[in-house]
Design a protein around this nucleic acid. Structure first.
Length: 565
RNA sequence: CGGGGAUUGGCGCAGUCUGGUAGCGCAUCUGCUUUGGGAGCAGAGGGUCGUAGGUUCGAAUCCUACAUUCCCGACCA
């Protein structure tokens, strides 16, 4: 490609709408342009990146036995009503009507459509297992789109769906997909980590997320220093440390004017946050309000909490009025002592002794509180986030936390959809049975953003070679004036093209500094500089995007410099 | 939806407090010079100041409503 025939549009200044580095660089390098909130144009340069990611994903999916098809982006309401998700999915599902007043939605995912295909196409166990996939545009009416294509409303996703006669067969494909995903992210060249995850609203037994590691990631991941354990913090089980100590001090009410938070409490009474109990009132299922008790230095894990049968889902904090009626005080002074509602304590909170908590009276706390002696034994459950230094739930090593960007997610769906939509098959005995399902997604556009998030410097993007919009660029110095430079640049351009290198010839009449800065911003992995001075020595300058220094090479070595890798 | 910003040529911003008819940088166009790190000089084009009301002799500036957008929280590839 010749730069003069392409559309490059970079900016020196960072658009004010972009907050995180990948979004800033995607805009500055001219990869994407915003059309509206959560809607982005993929500009020619950005599309090149996306196509390369798609190609890798497609190859590995095919290698793993996937069969590509393409389903419509617009879906009829009927199938969503069958799966009951027309009601359940909520406002994230963009609904619309056609001219006849029939309901449709923009597909946020395709379980319903694929299950409809399966029930029509698949009759015999002999046809299974089978794994269909597509690479397609999805629409989710996100509450808050943000970070450019990282969380946009319309985005490109690879979604695969597998069908099985048995759970064992599903497990096998699940593992195959796990391996295929590892292969995909290895090939792209990203630092990533598969982790155990909560399966969320899609449902199903087991699920695993693939995260690209980056400090700006929206998810916290816990892993063990002792073994392979890794899980999303949402999911990672917290292990209680130690056992409950002796009840050695007496209960005493102390005045604590103006103290509302654990932080203020520990300062006011000069006690460690670990000695304080945090009591949160949330809406319950059996009783209107339920108390959740955590150690002061721990954070509530909403997902774990709403999995408890006593707790309403989604997790909702009790209103100020409800708190008043249950505890006779404001939110900052609640404590578990004397409450007549169900009390659920985190395992670590249940291990506390002689602790400090709210007195259920404004501006007062109680010290020296002990379970069993001063209040009934609580229901014990794991409702907190793991923190660094916790023991690993596997018993080996301790927990460390890193941040990640979720780029892939694989689920075992089981028979949820096939039951609801009557997707059955005849087994060996001629008996009808529900198909087992798995589903497997990769956010293609998000991978591009995550790659930038992980690979950039102050000059711009540093693409992994596998997904760079161009593999190499030729930057001729003052080509307009020098026929020798022009000839040499054209010759190298032809040679690289012949060698199947995705090369860009910067034939624009620009000053060198502008060309260099622009190509570094765009992040092209290899650069060749052709200049009159160097040609006299039969040389070129080569610089890898992440190299600190350029090197001089003989002209003949140029092609090999790239193809040898 | 709750909270907090923002909206002024294509982009980044100043001007708003204290009302007097819009300015800077980048980008664009023309000419000349320059050609190894986003160049210099000279000139040019481009804005009903988000929208609609209101106050005023007069509104980018004050008031009201709305819209759009970004950030923080609950959703997710």
């Amino acid at each position: 490609m010749r730069a003069s025939q392409f559309h490059l549009a970079t900016t020196k200044e960072t658009p004010s709408e972009a907050e995180i580095v990948s979004h800033q660089l995607m805009l500055r390098a001219g990869l994407v342009r915003r059309l509206s909130s959560g809607l982005y144009n993929l500009m020619p340069l950005g599309l090149r990146v996306v196509r390369k990611i798609e190609a890798i994903v497609r190859e590995e999916m095919n290698r793993a036995g996937g069969i590509e098809l393409l389903m419509p982006a617009v879906q009829p309401a009927e199938i969503w009503q069958e799966s009951a998700r027309w009601e359940k999915y909520g406002p994230e599902l963009l609904r619309m009507q056609d001219r006849h007043g029939r309901d449709f939605c923009m597909g946020p995912t395709h379980e319903e459509v694929i299950t409809d295909i399966a029930r029509k196409e698949l009759r015999s166990y002999k046809q299974l297992p089978i794994n269909f996939y597509q690479i397609q545009t999805k629409f989710r009416d996100e509450i808050r789109p943000r970070f450019g294509v990282m969380r946009s409303r319309e985005f490109i996703m690879k979604d695969a769906y597998s069908f099985h006669t048995t759970e064992a067969s599903l497990l096998e494909t699940f593992d195959d997909m796990h391996n295929a995903y590892c292969e995909i992210f290895n090939r792209i060249g990203l630092e990533y980590r598969p982790v155990e995850a909560d399966s969320g609203s899609i449902g199903g037994a087991k699920s695993r997320e693939f995260h690209v590691l980056a400090d700006s990631g929206e998810d916290a991941l816990a892993y063990s220093t002792g073994d392979e354990f890794a899980a999303n913090v949402e999911k990672a089980a917290a292990v209680a440390q130690g056992t409950r100590g002796e009840a050695s001090s007496d209960m005493a009410v102390v005045p604590t004017p103006g103290v509302h938070t654990i932080d203020e409490l520990s300062k006011a009474l000069n006690v460690d946050a670990k000695q304080c109990a945090k009591t949160l009132l949330v809406e319950g299922t059996e009783s209107p309000v339920v108390a959740l008790v955590l150690r002061g230095d721990h954070q509530l894990n909403a997902i774990k909490a709403e999995h408890l049968e006593q707790v309403a889902s989604p997790l909702t904090f009790a209103s100020a009025e409800a708190i008043q009626s249950v505890a006779n005080c404001d939110a900052g002074s609640i404590g578990p002592v004397g409450l007549t509602i169900p009390v659920i304590a985190d395992a670590d909170a249940a291990n506390m002794s002689n602790f400090v908590c709210g007195a259920n009276k404004n501006d007062q706390h109680i010290t020296g509180v002990n379970w069993l002696r001063d209040l009934p034994e609580p229901v014990i459950a794991d409702i907190r986030n793991v923190v660094e230094g916790d023991a690993s739930p596997t018993g080996k090593g301790e927990i460390k936390i890193v941040r990640g960007i979720e780029v892939g997610h694989i689920f075992q769906l089981g028979t949820t959809y096939s039951e609801a939509m009557k997707a059955t098959i005849l087994d060996e005995n001629g008996k009808s049975q529900d198909m087992h399902m798995g589903c497997y997604g990769i956010g293609i556009t998000r991978v591009a953003a995550a790659a930038i998030e992980q690979n950039h410097d102050d000059k711009g993007i540093i693409w992994p070679e596998s997904i760079a919009p161009f593999t190499a660029v030729i930057s001729p110095i003052n080509m307009v004036k020098s026929d020798a430079v022009k000839a040499a640049a054209e010759k190298l351009y032809q040679q690289l093209k012949d060698a199947n290198v995705d090369v860009l010839l910067d034939d624009r009449p620009l000053r060198p500094g502008v060309m260099f800065a622009e190509m570094e911003l765009i992040g092209i992995p290899h650069r060749f500089v052709v200049s009159e001075k160097l040609l006299a020595e039969n040389q070129l300058e080569y610089k890898g995007r992440s190299d600190s220094e350029a090197t001089l090479i003989n002209i003949e070595e140029a092609v090999q410099k790239i193809t040898a890798k």
